[in-house]
């Protein structure tokens, strides 16, 4: 009998000792309190694998140029389009983990969030498609899951993507768009669309390429109408937004990476 209690005591002591590190881990504490904010995470000296990836993902989104320069070909950051580090509604928010994987006709496969992220590197960032298991991609996936906390799996989050503008009855007019651009946008984005310090370029070789979602007139119009001029969103009319995005669409930018350079050359030679 005496022995039994002793053994039992020993077991409790040992298990307490082994459990201490687990109890000390902030993640365990957070699991009971709900999700920590990014600011809290940034202050934490020690993070487990998941939360350190979340923070790394956040740092990539807000400063892609320095934290994921490996796969970037232009001078944009993810957060130039995914405003407020992907937390702003109607500005391509990133709380969309529940929407993936989804089936896409484009390649006849189920696509995970990873592929979506890699495509934004290839098109929007005019860079190289990172491998599936690149640390950068995994970190952004972790950040996307973190943002998606509390969303219903499979249900479209409120304010996903950009608003779809109603049909105005007129075709987008690039000439009007140019006027709107010079009046409303050039002060920040530059007359040549080249951007300036803190303002991203909207065309030219340092901007997104012709394969990017933003090069789609309706997509861009929705984004511009809801968010631009920055800090004064929804001040343009729907038609103005469509016009200016048609104007942007006509400008020089890196070619679509889906085009074969070989075929282009052939075309060029034949003509």
């Amino acid at each position: 009998m005496q022995n039994m209690t002793l053994i039992r005591k020993l077991i409790t002591v040992v298990s307490l000792i082994t459990a201490t590190p687990v109890l000390l881990m902030p993640s365990v504490v957070w699991a009971q309190q709900g999700q920590p904010t990014i600011e809290q995470l940034l202050q934490e000296p020690f993070l487990d694998d998941y939360y350190s990836n979340v923070v790394y993902g956040y740092e990539i989104i807000t400063d892609t140029q320095n934290n994921a320069s490996r796969y970037v070909g232009n001078s944009l950051n993810c957060s130039n389009c995914h405003l407020q580090a992907g937390t702003q509604k109607e500005a391509l928010p990133l709380n969309v983990a529940g929407m993936y994987p989804k089936w896409r006709a484009k390649n006849g496969k189920r696509n995970g969030i990873g592929l979506r992220i890699r495509e934004c590197f290839l098109y929007s960032m005019d860079g190289i498609m990172p491998p599936e298991d690149a640390p950068e991609v995994l970190a952004i996936s972790a950040y996307v899951s973190y943002l998606s906390q509390g969303q219903i799996m499979g249900a479209e989050p409120e304010g996903r993507g950009v608003p779809t503008l109603p049909d105005t009855g007129y075709d987008p007019n690039p000439a009007n768009g140019r006027a709107v651009y010079l009046e409303q946008c050039a002060s920040c984005h530059g007359v040549q669309g080249e951007g300036m310090v803190g303002m991203p370029p909207v065309w030219g070789l340092n901007s997104y390429n012709k394969g990017a979602g933003m090069n789609d007139i309706r997509e861009a119009a929705g984004f511009i109408w809801a968010n631009m001029p920055l800090g004064n969103g929804k001040s343009l009319s729907h038609q103005q937004a469509l016009d200016v995005s048609a104007y942007l669409n006509l400008q020089i930018r890196p070619s679509d990476p889906r085009d074969s350079k070989f075929l282009k050359l052939l075309e060029h030679l034949i003509n």
């Binding site: 320095n66 320069s69 490996r70 796969y71 970037v72 290839l122 860079g127 190289i128 498609m129 990172p130 491998p131 990476p257 889906r258 085009d259 074969s260 350079k261 070989f262």
Partner: peptide, 19 residues
């Protein structure tokens, strides 16, 4: 290969820019 086929088709992995 990159000249003939674009990356979305080949899905090749590249070293990338090294910081």
């Amino acid at each position: 290969v990159a000249f003939i086929w674009p990356q979305p088709i080949t899905e090749l992995e590249y070293l990338g820019r090294m910081p």
